[in-house]
Design a binder for these strands. Structure first.
Lengths: 360, 360
DNA sequence: AGTGATGATGTTATCGGTAACATAAACTGG
DNA sequence: CCAGTTTATGTTACCGATAACATCATCACT
């Protein structure tokens, strides 16, 4: 590379301007694709910029223009495919709109989220995305004060910090509960992770309980293993559920499909036939379902669509366009083969669109 | 909040300095935790900063100090748990060292990676992480020119752009092949995704073939479905493998454990008993193995450790400390129950540490 | 040719900090 | 008690760009 420079310092706008014999403003205009430079100059400048390997310094640019193309994204974990899928949905939109995503995980710890928000805000990003609707007050206030467009995703509330798109987890859990009630189950148990780690899961559990209490089943025993929802923790907790319960449950509702699959393995290891001896239901419509002989009964959430929708809303807000403030997306109940089939006599049909029927 | 400000503009360093009756340098020092401010002043300034909700502008700070706490991370996809786990391993180290990660996915498209590098470089990040060792020349050159510490992760080479930590995929595939050879398999087939999407997987396939060619098996038929390695694509491709092959394979080597599990389901659906009628091997040591009645034969890769190690190397390099340039990590062969058990007579033991024995 | 509109180009101030140097204040020891 | 040092604080220049405004050339039209 004999480009005339002797030093290894990366080229800056001034170098390009000097080389081209123009002012730095012309270079700036060309690099940003702004009008007001003759076609001849433009090509000259572009050629020189390329030759010098000039890349505009976005840090300086952002400071001067008081704008940014950074979008901060906070997710609890990437081990749940849910968030990977939501992220995939967003990524596409953002990338097309010219934004970059700065991502980090909080491991379900509110305080970690708070500190992340703090650090993030100081980068003056164009927007911020948080998972769920439970945040520390300090994080909330900081975002509002800084005036940064904020999207809350995955959970749903009518009163978001700014924008929100998600599903109603309480209603989703209740829909599953009602479905199981309709199938005749009366001795349910819930299998999840330790309390306090996943508020959405707890909301589903409560919705689930409500459905059964409507039928007079007032207590739903719950079993918890670990902090992380995995195949393995599902198996462990399910084993405990099968061993400990005096009157055996007739159906297990799991925090998600990962745990449900682990639980399914546990049941089979116990010599139980699913769904003859016990029913199993999960959550999320994990793609493992596509290959199982007996697909899991589960709730299908629109993860990718949710990510894309949220991203569109946020971009609209950033660009000053009008957009909806809060969207509650439907959850589709999938009646798999890990719960007993519908009795022919009953007129019951699976409850679709759990989200449409809001709690409260 | 009656903090004396009437406007909604976020506080800047000048506001704090004025309010405290000191110069902005004192505030700057306090906020950065630099020495040279009396304890009394320090507490005063911190109190005022807190009251005004002052958060230093990192964009301005980075520009002035010509440093950054941003680390760019590029992964092909988040749908493979591999990258989520590598990322988790890194995240921890970076977060402790005070760096933020800017992540994006390339969908296995080199050109997308190139454009991402371009955009990223203009943020002058402290470091950059790329997945794999195959990159466009332009991306390579740009990183070298900009002098940004770069880590290549997951694949391994002795001649990295800058730093590298990964596993030897060729050797890993060969180790599996030799293991299967030792178990007496002679009619192998490979099941993966379309060529050109995952170079690491192809390297494993070639290593696998080499192992069999050592035993005179010169052709290993391969079956490919889809661009994405999923449970479902594994099932589809395996079905094709079972249906199309004139002389049926006695063992199937899958691109990863996801596909292997899908394949296992396909085999069972075909009425085949695994491992009696056919063997199955995967790659990665996915955690589904912990709950399966017959755990998959697979290769366990140290994903989290790899992420952490890579992050440490990169941090060291950024801080100017000495660090190894390239690390090849071991892959552990796991002899599961989806391949036939070892014949008692043979003195064979599973081949460990596939990575130690480098190709070429 | 004169005049206002239009488009191309340059000048100046500024974005919000930090580095390096300068200066004032406090301390130390003989 | 004063030079010599250390510690605290302030001043100035600059990081690499952009916004807003100023200037100059060009052009159409009367």
């Amino acid at each position: 590379m004999t480009d005339g420079r002797t030093d290894r310092r990366p080229a800056k706008i001034e170098d390009v301007a000097r080389e081209a014999g123009v002012s730095i403003m012309s270079v700036s205009r060309v690099m940003r694709g702004v009008e007001g430079v003759s076609a001849k100059r433009r090509t000259e400048i572009l050629a020189i910029a390329k030759r010098l390997g000039y890349a505009p310094n976005r840090v300086a640019g952002s400071l001067a223009a008081a704008n940014s193309t950074l979008i901060g994204v906070s997710v609890p974990t990437l081990f749940e495919a849910v968030f990977a899928e939501i992220f995939a949905g967003m990524r596409d939109i953002f990338s097309k709109a010219g934004f970059q995503t700065v991502m980090d995980t909080t491991e379900y710890q509110p305080d970690r989220e708070r500190r992340w928000v703090s650090r993030m805000v100081s980068w003056h990003p164009a927007g911020i995305i948080l998972s769920g609707i439970d945040h520390t007050n300090r994080a909330r206030r900081q975002l509002v004060d800084a005036g940064i467009p904020t999207l809350e995703i995955w959970d749903h509330t009518d009163d978001p910090i700014d924008l929100c798109v998600g599903v109603d987890h309480f209603a989703a859990g209740r829909a599953v509960g009602r479905h199981l009630v309709a199938l005749g189950y009366r001795r349910p148990a819930y299998v999840g992770i330790e309390c306090g780690w996943d508020r959405r899961a707890e909301a589903r559990f409560h919705g689930f309980c409500e459905a059964f209490s409507e039928k007079g089943v007032t207590r739903v025993p719950d079993f918890r293993a670990d902090r992380r929802a995995s195949f393995e923790s599902g198996r462990c907790a399910a084993e405990r559920a099968l061993g400990e319960l005096a009157d055996n449950p007739d159906v297990l509702y799991f925090l998600n499909d990962h745990m449900a699959f682990g639980g399914l393995m546990a049941c089979e290891a116990h010599g139980l036939d699913v769904p003859r001896d016990i029913g199993i239901a999960g959550f999320n419509g994990l793609n493992i379902n596509a290959v199982l002989k007996k697909p899991l009964t589960t709730s299908i959430t629109p993860r990718t669509l949710m990510g894309a929708t949220g991203a569109r809303m946020l971009v609209a807000k950033i660009l000053g366009a009008k957009t909806e403030r809060s969207i509650c997306m439907p959850v589709e109940l999938f009646a798999g083969e890990t719960t007993r089939p519908l009795r022919a006599s009953s007129g019951f049909r699976p409850v679709l669109d759990a989200g449409a029927n809001k709690r409260g």
